[in-house]
Design a protein around this nucleic acid. Structure first.
Lengths: 253, 253
DNA sequence: CGAGGCGTTGAGGTTCTTCAATCATGGTGG
DNA sequence: CCACCATGATTGAAGAACCTCAACGCCTCG
């Protein structure tokens, strides 16, 4: 939970028109004039270490970001310290849309790995709506997509048992990483500790550890060198009681 | 789960400029030209009985609605029949924003009481973004607000025990009903069965019944004639482990 | 070498679930 | 008017899932 603001003075980062993310199969094409508008709104390219507060609970002046690289998560805490991880953020995800629309952040956002963020000033969010309706529409679209992910997490925590929750989380992260080209040989970088898992699944640390180890020993997945390999995706899907979900390209802002 | 489409042929319903909801303290003022635009987008005023499917899971042509009167809820089901209620919808809430932006509804929406809906064609959602950026912004704002409610529910189900979950739900519904002027003498119409409660709280029906009765006998609330009266809101708030939350007016579309 | 972060495991207790039976209420048809 | 049925709420009993407490091992880092 280190508070760092290592603002990279290299304001440009990568030009948005040449953004490597945009080439991934996860994302839709976008007309050049919209990309140039995004470029003109981008005021910084910021790098933060793992464990940094990107937005803290109650913050009123949170900017709007796109996660360029690395992982992060949104969370909510209770007064007595219990913490619920609401969802994980991967490259291309919007960071802080809710916080920038509502007057104060109702949640916190923390980096899970070192991250790079494209920074857009929250003051100009309305300008985006006024001048680039297509982008505004995609902003709303991305907001709805995030809500849909949280719906799924709520269903998991409310209805699935420990083993089903783990399976559902693995499949969800696997699919998202895959769409971003982060999966090679069924394995992808997996920066979560068991405490993160427990807080995301609504389980105690101990029970998470036991169930996690059991599923690993049962051959569902393997973990080495910080990379997770799904050994039996089909079985995992069935164990998660998941309905099929389509995977169409999405907007990148 | 009756499928009825009692389309009220009286297309007008109430003129939006004279919408009685708009007078409630829950809602912000809006310029007349925006209200007239909303009126021009409204294609129907539809009445459905309790238990009707407003949007069914997987539906691809769901319209966008504003809930004019009555209660509804969003839910997600697992293949084996377990159901999670994601959030409750009260008058003034948008219905089906997520479904109208994404290509198919990832959830269902069902009426809890008889409801009246203002119907807006999903085909014209983009037109709204193009022609009325202020309204588009408020649409996104309402989407973020709904996400924020789901965040709270996820935190409840993931971190609170049965009694805390019930307290948190009661406070949340009480505050929302209050802002709509639906509360008189600390009591408001309460159309949920214990099955709805159980599905929203992620608890079994039996345990919900036992905890619910225990809190009622403990004097937290009283239920008679379908109306719920919160007898000790302060205590309920403390029991829910809730942070204080501001209540500013919100947009009505 | 010590400290701290992270993961694992055992033991015992609590919360919550499942199964099952009962009861109250309201509507319907004979 | 009453028998019948459906829906919803209540309660007891037994067991499973999950939680807390506690101890220990492994690793990295200073």
């Amino acid at each position: 939970m280190v508070m760092v603001s290592t603002t990279n003075r290299n304001r440009t980062g990568v030009p948005c028109l040449a953004c490597p993310l945009r080439l991934k199969p996860a994302f839709k094409d976008k007309p050049d004039d919209e990309i140039r508008f995004i470029q003109s709104m981008k005021v910084d390219h910021r790098q933060l270490p793992a464990g940094a507060d990107i937005i803290h609970p109650g913050q009123e002046d949170a900017e709007l970001y796109t996660l360029f690289s690395g992982w992060a998560f949104r969370y909510k805490s209770l007064p007595d310290g219990r913490r619920q991880i609401l969802n994980f953020l991967l490259p291309g995800d919007l960071v802080g849309l809710q916080a920038s629309l509502l007057s104060a952040a109702q949640h916190g956002i923390e980096s899970l790995t070192e991250v790079e963020l494209c920074v857009f000033p929250r003051r100009r969010t309305y300008e985006l709506f006024a001048r680039m309706p297509a982008l505004a529409y995609e902003l709303a679209w991305l907001g709805s997509r995030e809500e849909s992910l949280i719906d799924e997490n709520l269903t998991s925590v409310g209805q699935r048992n420990a083993q089903e929750r783990i399976a559902a989380l693995l499949i969800s992260l696997y699919r998202r990483a895959d769409a971003l080209g982060l999966v090679s040989e069924d394995s992808f970088a997996f920066p979560l500790t068991q405490q993160h898992l427990a807080d995301a699944l609504g389980l105690s640390l101990v029970h998470t550890s036991k169930t996690w180890s059991r599923l690993r020993r049962a051959g569902l997945f393997a973990l080495s060198g910080g990379r997770l390999k799904l050994l039996n995706p089909r079985l995992t899907e069935r164990m998660a009681l998941l309905f099929e979900s389509e995977r169409r390209p999405r907007p990148l802002i």
